[in-house]
Simulated assay, not measured.
Amino acid sequence: MPIAEIPLSVWRKHGKDFEFRGQRIRYWVAGHGEPLLLIHGFPTASWDWHYLWQPLARRYQLIACDMLGFGDSDKPLEHEYSLLEQADLQQALLAHLQVRQAVHLLAHDYGDSVAQELLARHYEQRIAIASCVFLNGGLFPETHRPVLTQKLLLSPLGWMLGRAFSRHGLANSFRQIFGPQTRPSESVLDDFWSLVHSNNGPRILHKLIAYIPERRLQRERWVSAMQRGEVPLRVIDGAQDPISGAHMVERYCQLIPEPDTVLLPGIGHYPQIEAPLPVLKHYLGFRDRLPSPSRQAVGS
């Protein structure tokens, strides 16, 4: 199946807006079929999925948004950002689009934590999740290895670093976490920076980074939900990732019954950008083995 890049300028033209708790959220929808919710990572946005967007849209109804504080959505300065609120946002978007059947999840990085929260809510009968695939992310706080920039943003001086954060700083961070043979081009770095910089994004990076301690608070609830085994799960992971690579998958195999994992050798933290064809292959392979589509209503 061919993979075609969607330039950021084109991607932006196809976005729509809806309001969430007084804030403007940018979202994208494409395709038909079972709903597939794509949840992006930190510090980027839904454009992360652009290589997979068209091939996945041939089979599924794709739904993605730039979460609050990310990409082209609003980035209020006086706001306490929370993974739990981002899960609320995903549910509000599904309600806005009148999606009532069980939803499949494909998540990355920060989005993994939002997906973990939605999975926990599934078992609380607050949403119906049909399946979940995690790309590289901090599924377990004990295996998460933040880069220096993340550590500094978490410090008392994080607000100063955020305001001084530049394209150069983003490029340096990304060169550390991408695979050695799959690092982003200057053009791709320009586009990533455009999304981070949009709506004065650097000034809130120190607030967004609060997701790291929040993960620790929710660990037992989220890991327990993954251990239930009723919702099909898969991990597709860039093994070379220093943040959540092969060492995270090793921990996943220790904690999750009958673990379904795929390691991509030489690939770093952004497998959907670095190796979109293998990610697509392993995602579709996972979906092809699932039972017939569930028509369970959300919340039923």
Rank of each mutant, 00 (worst) to 15 (best):
R219Q: 14
R203I: 06
G179R: 09
N199F: 08
L189R: 00
P213K: 04
E220G: 00
S194E: 15
R203V: 09
E186A: 12
D191L: 09
T182I: 02
L217K: 12
N199E: 13
P184D: 02
F178S: 10
L208G: 09
P180E: 03
L195G: 11
H206A: 11
H206R: 10
A210S: 14
T182Q: 03
H206F: 10
L189Y: 00
D190P: 02
R215G: 03
L217S: 10
G201S: 09
L189H: 00
R219P: 06
L217E: 14
G201H: 07
Q181H: 14
T182L: 02
R219H: 12
F178G: 04
P180W: 01
D190I: 00
V196G: 06
G201E: 06
D190Q: 08
R216G: 12
G201K: 05
N199L: 11
Y211P: 03
P213I: 04
L205V: 10
I204T: 06
A210W: 08
G179H: 11
H197C: 12
Y211M: 04
S185Y: 00
G201F: 06
Q218I: 08
R203T: 13
F178N: 06
I212Y: 12
T182P: 03
E214H: 07
R215I: 01
G201D: 08
S198H: 15
P202C: 05
F178A: 07
P180Q: 02
F192C: 09
K207F: 00
R216N: 10
D191H: 12
L189E: 00
I209V: 15
T182H: 07
N200H: 13
S194Y: 13
N199D: 12
T182C: 04
S194M: 14
L195C: 13
H197M: 13
G179D: 11
I204F: 02
G179F: 11
L208C: 09
I212D: 11
R215E: 02
I204D: 02
E186L: 05
L195T: 11
R219E: 13
I212R: 10
A210M: 10
V196A: 08
F192S: 05
D190L: 02
R183N: 04
P213E: 05
R219S: 12
R203K: 10
V196Q: 06
N199P: 06
S185T: 11
D191I: 05
R216Q: 13
P184V: 01
R216M: 11
L189D: 01
R215Y: 03
P202F: 03
R203G: 01
N200K: 08
D190T: 03
W193C: 03
V188G: 04
R219L: 05
S194H: 15
E220K: 07
R215D: 02
V196R: 06
S185P: 02
K207G: 00
P184L: 01
D191C: 12
L195A: 13
V188K: 14
S187Q: 15
E186K: 09
F192D: 07
S185M: 01
H197T: 08
N200I: 01
T182E: 02
